[in-house]
Amino acid sequence: MSDTGLRVVWVYPDLLSTYGDQGNALVVERRAQQRGLAVQRTDIRSDEQVPTSADIYLIGGGEDRPQRLAAERLLRDGGLRRAVDNGAIIFSVCAGYQILGREFVNDLGEPQQGLGLLDVVSTRGEAERCVGDVLADIDPNLGLPELTGFENHQGITHIGPTAKPLARVRLGKGNGTGDGTEGAWNDTVFGTYMHGPVLARNPQIADHLIKLALDVNALPPVDDQWYDALRKERISAAVQPA
């Protein structure tokens, strides 16, 4: 983290901000500020250069054509890779998650090169879209409570040998491979299919990203009353749908 505070980048809102995932940026911002940190948030459109020295990059879901355009432009830009080389944290959702992988199938039905920042490959499912509340157990190495989110995608993501599943689903589809995995992570790069937005449903993940950025093991507590109430409600709704 620089002297100017925590630098948060919301990547390509013009292409990848369709499903409310900018809430992830809002939650990180808010929870950092509540800990007395100055936060500098920058929204980078797809005709701008991605800065390489920020702390946390957030990427959201988008529609199929914007996903193709975003992958093309991010690959050409090269900024995210340099940022990761500089130790930056990337948290990505849905289309953003697929783009971070090695390859995905685009709106033209063709395989398209991703950024290769996560060892995953995505294809399109033939079955119905996966839509609904998800409940999953996060990789114990991350020391985080159970994951709750809302999924809405048709993609199937296979995890390669150098990435790990972010979570194992108890309810819902997750990566859609049938092996019960959901999302992927490796070191400081994270991907998930969960909306909600996921960091509003799982503020402990937002805190985890902030801790990684600050290189600390703990943060001062904040009042989580409403987050806790929402988590409890969504978890029981996933277990017992209305």
């Binding site: 499903y19 409310g20 995932d21 809430g23 809002l26 839509v131 809302f150 909306h195 909600g196 509003a200």
Partner: peptide, 9 residues
């Protein structure tokens, strides 16, 4: 619509 994520927009 069963997804509330849009509240964040």
């Amino acid at each position: 619509g069963t997804d509330t994520s849009w509240l964040w927009d």
